[in-house]
Design a protein around this nucleic acid. Structure first.
Length: 636
RNA sequence: GCCGAUAUAGCUCAGGUGGUAGAGCAUCUCACUUGUAAUGAGAAUGUCCUCCGUUCGAAUCGGGGUAUCGGCUCCA
């Protein structure tokens, strides 16, 4: 007799050893149909696993994230089988689940997206057969025998300990896999191959390049549709396209990966930085600026010459070798070293909007998201050991304030000591605990990335979430145990002795260019009033009203509002359409009526028109909206 | 840098099978003087990414290169 405790604490008894699916069926057939796997003590098993002793089980269903991952993993197996059927010489390597789906790296002839319909058709055949996923336990020797024609699998198997290995079989297709899997292929109701690219075996450029096929799968057709719609929406918002359409920035062949900002783009840029400066001043930062071109000696001292040289642009001046800065820190260190500091000067928060250049691989460049020249909203904060906690909390609060201004949420990740690192165990522990304590006090929950820190110190990363729920790593706080040492930075403590300051690097926007691009996509080009490059456009109804319209324009401009007048002799309809598609937040029409009564007719981007508004009634809320940098779409 | 796709007017795109290019929008001119998402007519606009080759003849076929896009990779 076996007693099984379910997650609602009820107990079911069985005479023999039931499989998990039997247990699920004993609850209801409908429930069983939605079950994917079971979880015992945090370990996940297939549904056809027999339960041989009393335990507490939790079913993983189509509603769970874990269930979706299992489905996608199974779909990867189906794709692999389809490819093996169609491409006889193909050799499977690995096929994991990723954020929005799965991929499988396969050693095979190169395929293009045109081949997808073929592969998908083959996958559908396999799904229709409702093949059962069978788990087979084998010894290492048996596994090596099974995959004797596949050097990749052999490499993988040999790396595993001499434990029992599991294979999964659907029909005659067999793959090395830890599992678990869905009960049968028929449960894959909707899937789609997404893209294909090259990927090196073990991410190693010296190894063979494989074909990486990406796909995704969902339990419900509606979810797949929703996912595809988000991709379509993201395409519409593509900052590369919107940037050209809205005349914000461009790229040129003569400066690959280095953006040119146009007049309208600069209006946004300047508004953004004006805000940045305001918040930083409020948070007690000073602003500094260091040179772009610095002597090689400095880069040797900082360690960049040794560790980052392949990404640095260099030049020879007066027979001396120079490098264009890829980071601001060494310059910042020089500034600190210029005078002597006391603990009373701490915390010293020195900001710098620094222009850095990094030689990224040509294939990695992508609009404003990946560039070779960009501005970092950097700052170096020097402090005593005791100040770490409070300083980190201060930075986190500043980031929270600034992100929320754009309606961006975020999550936090803490990265700890990597394998290759400098410093003593004690230093790392102290530093990591400092960050941890700050995070705990700050209160928002955070994830830990073990071993993902920089080699010179642990770090906190903030990942913002945009309007399409995509996440972007922007903010980072990095504790640096190396540079103060390398530059022999000191301060005088209370004890009148010299001490080494604690130093952190931190950015809020990260790369301002990239953040700009994120904002374009986040707002889909419809910037809030305070950021909009043109805040108001005035449309005179006929040529006679142009001069009056210009009077109104200068009235607005004197208030610091960015305002244009559309003086073309075009129909009002056309001018309105033009203003709308350029996402100008406030569209003002001037006709005889408005001129005679000194009122305005105001159209907002939602298409609503308000007539007969007096100048004061208009200006008051508009100026307030701009000054407070409101996100609210409602202006009037 | 690697794999794949793409490259035609300022923009979006047409141009089976080789005979040196076309539409819409934008621009300019003229007429219309417009009341809330495209007034009409006309004009101008091209190294068909680039180089080499095949051919009597190349936007079109072949090869090299460049850039862009999707990935890989890199990320002190």
């Amino acid at each position: 007799m076996i007693n099984i405790t379910l997650s609602d604490k009820s107990i079911k008894s069985f005479q023999d050893y039931p499989s998990a699916i039997d247990v699920a069926r004993s609850i209801s057939q409908g429930f069983a149909r939605n079950c994917i796997a079971m979880e015992i003590n945090g370990n996940i098993f297939d549904l056809n696993n027999q339960i041989k002793k009393d335990c507490k089980i939790k079913f993983i269903t189509t509603k769970d994230d874990k269930g979706l991952e299992i489905l996608r993993h199974s779909c990867a197996h189906v794709m692999a089988e389809a490819i093996q059927n169609l491409y006889k010489d193909s050799k499977l390597t690995i096929g994991p689940v990723v954020k929005d789906g799965f991929y499988y790296d396969i050693d095979m002839e190169s395929v293009s997206e045109d081949d997808f319909s073929n592969i998908e058709a083959e996958m559908k055949k396999i799904i229709k057969e409702k093949k059962e996923f069978k788990r087979i336990s084998v010894t290492k020797a048996q596994a090596l025998e099974t995959f004797k024609d596949n050097p990749y699998k052999i490499e993988l198997i040999n790396e595993l300990l001499d434990q029992e290995l599991t294979l999964y079989k659907q029909g005659s297709f067999i793959d090395l896999c830890r599992g678990p899997h869905i009960p049968h292929t028929g449960m894959i109701k909707s899937f789609k191959l997404m893209k294909v690219s090259g990927a090196y075996w073990r991410a190693d450029q010296s190894k063979k390049q494989l074909q990486r096929l990406y796909g995704t799968a969902f339990f419900d057709k509606k979810d797949l549709k929703k996912y595809i719609n988000i991709i379509i929406e993201a395409k519409k918002r593509d900052h590369k396209k919107l940037g050209a359409k809205l005349d914000l920035y461009s790229f040129h062949e003569n400066a690959l990966g280095m953006p040119f900002f146009h007049a309208k783009g600069m209006e946004i840029w300047n508004s953004l930085l004006e805000y940045w400066r305001k918040e930083h001043k409020k948070a007690g930062y000073i602003e500094t600026k260091t040179p772009v071109l610095l002597n090689k000696n400095l880069w040797k001292k900082s360690g960049h010459w040794e560790n980052y040289r392949k990404n640095m642009y260099t030049s020879v001046i007066d027979k001396e070798e120079y490098a264009i800065k890829p980071m601001n820190c060494p310059g910042g260190m020089l500034l600190y070293g210029l005078k002597s500091y006391s603990y009373r000067d701490f915390p010293l928060r020195a900001g710098e909007i620094g222009l850095v250049h990094r030689h990224e691989l040509s294939g990695a460049l992508s609009g404003l998201f990946r560039v070779r020249a960009f501005h970092q909203d950097d700052a170096h904060i020097f402090m005593t050991l005791e100040q770490i906690e409070q300083e980190i909390i201060g930075v986190l609060k500043l980031m929270e304030t600034m992100y929320s201004k754009f309606g961006l949420g975020f999550h936090i990740e803490l990265s700890t000591r990597p394998e290759k690192s400098i410093g003593t165990d004690e230093q790392w522990e102290q530093a990591t605990n400092g960050l941890k304590n700050a995070l705990d006090k700050y209160g928002q929950k955070y994830f830990i990335n073990k071993g993902d820190g920089a080699f010179y110190g642990p770090k906190i990363d903030l990942h913002i979430k945009d309007a399409l729920e995509r996440t972007w790593q922007c903010g980072t706080i990095q504790l640096d145990m190396a540079l103060p040492e390398r530059f022999d930075l000191t301060y005088k403590g209370k004890d009148n002795k010299k001490h080494r300051p604690i130093m952190i690097h931190r950015v809020v926007f990260g790369s301002i260019e990239r953040f700009f691009g994120i904002l374009v996509e986040h707002f889909a080009g419809k910037f809030p009033l305070w950021l909009a490059p043109v805040q108001i456009i005035i449309l005179p109804i006929n040529d006679d009203l142009v001069s009056y319209s210009k009077e109104i324009q200068s009235l607005f401009e004197n208030q610091g509002i960015r305002c244009e007048v559309d003086i073309r002799t075009e129909s009002l309809k056309k001018k309105v359409r033009n203003a709308q598609i350029n996402y100008i937040p406030l569209i003002i029409t001037i006709g005889e009526k408005e001129k005679n009564t000194s009122t305005l007719s105001v159209r907002t981007l939602d298409g609503k028109v308000r007539m007969g508004i007096s100048l004061e009634k208009f200006l008051d809320p508009v100026l307030k909206h701009i000054k407070q940098r409101k996100l609210d779409k409602k202006i009037l």
